[in-house]
Amino acid sequence: MQFESLDQKIPFEAQLQEKTGTVVLVNTVIVPDGLMDEVLESWAVDAAFMKAAPGCISTQLHRGTAGSDILINVAVWESTETLFKAFSDPEFQAKAAGYPEGVIVRPYLCEKVAVEGICVA
């Protein structure tokens, strides 16, 4: 599995170091042709580990329509600290190594933004 930064100015590793409250992990996964079933199996293993980790509020996987080979995982965490602890756990790292070759992931952290009359933070 190859990690790439979505934001070239702020790499994911730097985002994990910032102390925050609730964060949303948006992880784009680009799946090579013919490997979707294998990637979905690997993701389920990862997600079960993360979902059981302290600080994980929720996770939801999405797939692009019309036969797309792009998956997007949206996970809500209590803080960057709890996500970092789970992400850096050697057991999780071993599970993440089980993805097939050629998979590209682009994780990104964000926080809710309040826009008056539209949404709350």
Rank of each mutant, 00 (worst) to 15 (best):
E4H: 10
L6D: 09
D7I: 06
I10Y: 02
P11R: 01
F12V: 04
F12T: 03
A14F: 08
Q15E: 08
Q15L: 00
L16V: 02
Q17W: 03
E18Y: 05
E18S: 07
E18R: 12
E18M: 08
K19S: 11
T20H: 05
T22P: 15
L25Y: 03
V26W: 02
N27C: 01
T28R: 15
T28K: 13
V29F: 07
V29H: 05
P32F: 05
D33L: 10
M36K: 10
E38W: 10
V39W: 01
E41G: 09
E41V: 13
S42I: 01
S42F: 03
A44H: 06
V45F: 12
V45W: 02
M50N: 09
M50I: 05
K51L: 08
A52L: 02
G55S: 10
G55P: 09
H62L: 11
H62D: 05
G64Y: 07
T65P: 06
A66T: 03
A66R: 14
G67V: 01
G67R: 01
S68H: 04
S68N: 10
D69M: 07
I72F: 02
I72R: 13
N73L: 06
N73H: 04
V74K: 12
V74E: 15
V74T: 14
A75R: 01
A75N: 06
V76A: 09
V76T: 13
V76G: 06
W77V: 03
T80M: 03
E81S: 15
E81R: 00
T82C: 15
T82G: 08
L83A: 10
L83E: 04
F84M: 12
K85S: 08
K85Y: 10
S88D: 15
S88C: 11
P90V: 07
F92M: 15
F92Q: 05
Q93E: 10
A94F: 00
A94E: 15
A96H: 04
A96F: 03
G98Y: 03
Y99I: 09
Y99D: 14
G102I: 09
G102C: 07
G102N: 07
V105T: 13
R106T: 00
R106N: 04
R106K: 13
P107Q: 01
E111W: 01
E111A: 04
A114F: 08
V115G: 02
V115Q: 08
E116M: 05
E116N: 14
G117H: 04
I118Y: 07
C119I: 12
V120F: 13
